[in-house]
Nucleic acid binder design. Structure first.
Lengths: 236, 236
DNA sequence: CGCTCGGTTGATGCACATCAAAGGCTGTGG
DNA sequence: CCACAGCCTTTGATGTGCATCAACCGAGCG
C-alpha cells in the first residue's frame, strides 16, 4: 500500500513551496523533525474522519481529496489539496484534535507526515510560517465560499467554474489540463449533484470539442467558451 | 451610525472570551493597542468585500453576518459571528490583504477593531493566542462543511439543522432561542434557497407549535420534532 | 398617508433527481 | 484462458422539489 521515504530526499521539493520560502535548509529539517514521507497509491486513505489527529501533513506530489460522508452515506468532497498544501493543520491546536474529514490520495502521491507536537512546539512559534499556513487556509476557505455562492447558478456554470478552477496551464505545451485523476462522480460529489447530470453536461462539451478525457485526465481544449458558460446566468 | 468607545470598558467582556482565557489584563491591553470599540446599529456595514483589509475584528456583543453577493446580485450568507469570534483574522498575513466578504451587524452590536499590524506584530507572536484563533476558524470551517454535506438533503432537514445549530439555551428560562434577529430571507440566503420555500416550511412549524417568532427573534418550543426532521431523510 | 419591508399564499413550470439498462475496462480467481 | 465482479461512463424515460411569478396583508415610519 504505502511506503516510507527519508525526509531528506524531499528537501528540494519542500524548499520550493511558498510555505517554506524563506526557511534555511537547517531550519527546514528542524521543522520536519520526526517526519516521514509516505508514498500513497490511488485511493489510499491517509486520515479518517473522526480519528484522533496526531499528525498533520504537507502534500509533496500528486493530489489528495478531503471528503466526508453525508446523511445518505454518499461522499461529499470538500477540497482538493495540491503539492505545497497543508492538511489537518487547523485542528492541531485543539485539546483533543480529531480529523474533520477523510483524506484520500488521488493517483500516486507523496505526503510529509509530521507529529502534532511539532506543529505546537515548532511551527506555531514561527510567525512567518504561521502566516503562510493561514494564507493556504484562507484560499481554501475562499474556494468553499465560491462553491457556496454558485450553488444557485445553473449546473452548467458550476461545472465550468470547477473545471477552470482546478485546471493549470502546462508550462511546456501550454495546454490547460486538470492535474489530478478525476472521475465524473468526484466532480458530482464536489458540486453535490448526481453523476448523470455531470455526465450529460460534460459529454456535450466533449462532442463540441471543448474538452477531452484521456485516462481520467481532463484537458480543456478551448477556455473561452467555458468561461462564457461559467458567467452565463441569464441567457436571453 | 456607529460610535466609538474606549477599549477599557470592554476589558471584562474580552477577558471572558475563550480567545483571551489565559491572558493577563496588561497583556490584553497590549494585544488591543490602537484598538477601538465600535457600536453598530442593525444592518451597519463593518467591512466591505474587496476593500483593503487594514483591520481585523473581535465581536464583543450582538452578532454579525459574513456574506457575499452571488452572480445574480443576491446575498449569500457564509457565517454568523457571535461574541468572542474573530473576523478577517485569516487574511491579515496576506501581502495585500482584501476582505473576502461583507461583514454586517445584526441588531445593535459591538466590535473591537484592531489594525493589521497588531495582528502581525503581536498576535502572531503568541502561540497560545494563534491556537485559539485557529480553533475558531476550525469550527467555522466545520459549519461550512456541514452546510455543504447537507446540500442534498430535503430542505426541511436543512432548515431544522440550521435553526438547531444557531439556537442557544437561555440559562435562566431554559428556553431555546436564536440569539440574533434573523429574517426568513437570511435563512434562505444561508441555505441558498428562496424565501418562499423557507416560509412554507417555517409557517407549518409555527402552526404545529414547534416554533414562534417575536420581533424577528425565533424561539424553539419543541426540540425533539426538529431533531427528528433534521435526521429524516428517507421517510418511508 | 404613502412608503418600504417582512411575511404569506397559490398557480405554474422547469432543472435536476431518480430509476433502469447497457457497454467498456480492470482486476481477480477458478 | 475465461468468467465474473466492480467501477466508470453513457443514454433514455419519468417524476418531483423547489423556483418563479404574482398578489396581498400588516406593521412601522417619515
Amino acid at each position: 500500500m504505502e511506503t516510507k521515504l527519508s525526509v531528506l530526499n524531499a528537501v528540494p521539493e519542500l524548499s520550493s513551496f511558498h510555505l517554506f520560502k524563506d526557511i534555511s535548509k537547517d531550519d527546514l529539517l528542524q521543522l520536519c523533525a520526526n517526519g516521514t514521507v509516505k508514498v500513497h497509491q490511488h485511493r489510499d486513505l491517509v486520515f479518517r474522519s473522526g480519528d484522533p489527529a496526531n499528525f498533520f501533513g504537507v502534500a509533496i506530489s500528486g493530489a489528495y481529496k478531503l471528503s466526508k460522508l453525508n446523511h445518505l452515506g454518499h461522499e461529499s468532497i470538500i477540497y482538493f489539496a495540491s503539492p505545497g498544501d497543508v492538511v489537518a493543520a487547523l485542528v492541531m491546536p485543539a485539546k483533543v484534535p480529531e480529523y474533520p474529514v477523510d483524506v484520500t490520495a488521488l493517483g500516486c502521491s507523496r505526503m510529509l507526515l509530521l507529529p502534532r507536537e511539532i506543529y505546537i512546539n515548532y511551527w506555531m512559534k514561527r510567525p512567518p510560517l504561521i502566516g503562510c499556513v493561514q494564507q493556504l487556509l484562507s484560499s481554501r476557505m475562499a474556494r468553499l465560499h465560491s462553491l457556496k455562492t454558485m450553488q444557485r447558478a445553473p449546473l452548467t456554470s458550476r461545472v465550468a467554474s470547477l473545471l477552470l478552477d482546478l485546471s493549470q496551464e502546462d508550462t511546456q505545451t501550454r495546454v490547460h489540463c486538470i492535474p489530478l485523476p478525476l472521475t465524473r462522480k468526484e466532480i458530482a460529489d464536489t458540486l453535490e449533484v448526481t453523476v448523470e447530470s455531470v455526465i450529460r453536461i460534460m459529454s456535450d462539451w466533449t462532442k463540441q470539442g471543448l474538452i477531452t478525457t484521456k485516462d481520467s485526465s481532463i484537458h480543456i481544449l478551448n477556455l473561452d467558451p467555458l468561461k462564457q458558460l461559467m458567467r452565463d446566468v441569464t441567457t436571453p
